[in-house]
């Protein structure tokens, strides 16, 4: 979707402001949100792409106003409601609906570190051959999907060069819609800064993106 989350190349957000000696969390509730969202994620009612889409579909003004962990909380609630893990009545009252049996949490303390160490690899086996070879000239397709996509606006229609492929990976556009992993080749594509931003850019500079086969066409 052409949302406000797709920020590459935008102006107007001001300078980058690093914080000296920044703590991992700025308040205990941020840590609880991080852990809560991942712990309810262990119910596997959604996937990482649907999770990202739930953040992208926050109202644009809210997206820009909220902090990172405020967005995580809002998205966590959306995902739980969508999956039926909680009801609007429960959220409003703060109390469990007594008609729903008490569940058993899938993420127990001893499973946390193994779950972190395992992660969620997205590489999949495929018998298909890659469509593009290293060094091939490609163009990012000029498409405007209304759902989740990982093809940023700033490269659409631009020409680049295949750097390498990383094998076949879960395709976010279909996975976010719960329409299957549809793995396809993932390529690192080099775009010259001048191709993206015009003659003012340094001729030596480049931006590299990881793009799925469906995002690309021969140039």
């Amino acid at each position: 979707m052409n949302g406000v989350h797709d920020m590459g190349g935008m102006h107007g957000f001001g300078p980058v402001e690093p914080e000296a000696d920044e703590p991992v969390f700025h308040a205990p509730w941020e840590a609880r949100v991080l852990a809560l969202r991942r712990a309810v994620g262990a119910w596997r009612r959604w996937n990482i792409d649907a999770g990202r889409y739930s953040i992208e579909t926050l109202p644009p003004a809210d997206y820009l106003r909220m902090s990172y962990y405020e967005k995580w909380l809002a998205s966590c609630i959306k995902l739980m409601l969508g999956a039926g893990l909680v009801t609007p009545q429960e959220l409003a009252s703060g109390r469990r609906d007594p008609a729903v049996p008490v569940a058993t949490p899938p993420l127990t303390p001893e499973k946390v570190l193994p779950a972190i160490a395992a992660g969620g690899p997205t590489l999949r086996v495929t018998s298909a051959a890659p469509r593009f070879e290293a060094g091939a000239a490609v163009r990012a397709r000029d498409i405007n999907p209304t759902g989740h996509t990982r093809l940023p606006r700033y490269v659409r229609g631009r020409r680049g060069t295949i750097e390498c492929h990383h094998g076949a990976h879960v395709f976010p556009d279909s996975n976010a819609r719960f329409e299957g992993e549809s793995p396809q080749y993932l390529y690192t594509v080099r775009f010259a800064a001048r191709e993206l931003w015009g003659e003012a850019a340094n001729p030596a500079d480049a931006v590299y993106l990881d793009l799925w086969e469906d995002y690309l066409e021969p140039a």
Partner: peptide, 18 residues
């Protein structure tokens, strides 16, 4: 509190993750 009451998350698991 709600998620713990519903048995959806184990608060001790959250502590380990944090």
């Amino acid at each position: 509190s709600l998620l713990v009451e519903k048995g959806l998350v184990d608060p001790a698991a959250l502590d380990v993750m944090i």
